[in-house]
Amino acid sequence: MTKEVLQPLAKPVYGAGGPTGTWRSQRPVLDKEKCTGCLLCWIYCPEAVIAREDRAIDYEYCKGCGLCARECPVGAIAMIREGEEA
């Protein structure tokens, strides 16, 4: 007899809460010249949208909370209003 799970199972996937980048009113923009690679933005980002290697930001899911810009010790991340140029 095979034992099958009867309950519907959820699977881990990006965007389980939807395309959360649409929640954003401001977007973080990284100045690569200023970035020292300390990784504080990477560890503090609640959504894990900042890449460890080059701190590239995944705007599809970034909610624009601004924690990365607030915690960056060298001010390498600026928060820019959506619809405006960096």
Partner: peptide
């Protein structure tokens, strides 16, 4: 955490 959660920003 897989990005795009249902949690509030921050």
């Amino acid at each position: 955490i897989q990005r795009g959660t249902g949690a509030c920003a921050g």
